[in-house]
């Protein structure tokens, strides 16, 4: 039995827990706790350890879906989580004050991992705040010399999250047969 994993990361409230739940085969294990301090401004509960979901593959294999904790003070876990991962899904909350700052922070933090694997970016809450647009994100990413998939995403929608993960997989290997 082989195990694989994809990492979901992003700031507090970006929808990591929800996104994992929307494609997981089992009810996701979430370690949300009542938020305090700055985090409470974004959501009432935040993930303090990690989220976990799983997609069962054939032959008893499994794809594990790990969500990083949103709070930066838990970033010591990020290296551990990415170990052996096959790709990164970065979710950004468009309604935050400076989503580009978040984008750059996570790209820097996961730079090595992204370099070894790949990244797909989902922008959530675009119905709450339309700016910056997906075009703006593309331009921002060009400054990093990156051209990854960037989609508007509703983390509650299976199709959106599934498409984002599919794009991640294809971007790592375009000749994959679907």
């Amino acid at each position: 039995m082989a195990n694989y994993k994809i990492i979901f990361t992003g700031p507090v409230g970006a929808g990591k827990t929800t996104a994992i739940a929307s494609i997981s085969d089992v009810p996701p294990v979430s370690t949300d706790a009542t938020a305090s301090d700055m985090t409470r401004k974004r959501k009432n509960a935040t993930t303090v350890a990690m989220d976990y979901g799983v997609l069962k593959l054939d032959k008893g294999d499994a794809l594990h879906l790990y969500g990083t904790p949103g709070q930066e003070r838990f970033d010591f876990m990020w290296d551990i989580l990415t170990e052996g991962g096959i790709g990164l899904v970065l979710l950004l909350d468009n309604s935050r004050n400076n989503p580009f700052q978040d984008l750059q922070f996570f790209l820097r933090t996961f730079e090595d991992f992204i370099g070894r694997t790949g990244v797909a970016i989902g922008v959530t809450q675009m119905d709450i705040k339309a700016q910056p647009t997906i075009r703006d994100y593309r331009q921002e990413l060009m400054t990093n010399g990156l051209k990854p998939p960037v989609f508007a995403v509703d983390a509650r929608t299976h199709n959106d999250v599934s498409l984002l993960v599919q794009a991640l997989l294809f971007s790592m290997d375009p000749v994959l047969v679907d």
Binding site: D173, P174, V175
Partner: peptide, 24 residues
Amino acid sequence: VEPSTAASENRSVLARILQRLKIA
């Protein structure tokens, strides 16, 4: 395109994940 070695190694895994996502 000449797929990288890493991609080739992972290909069957990625294809199976993809298949699974499309079925779900």
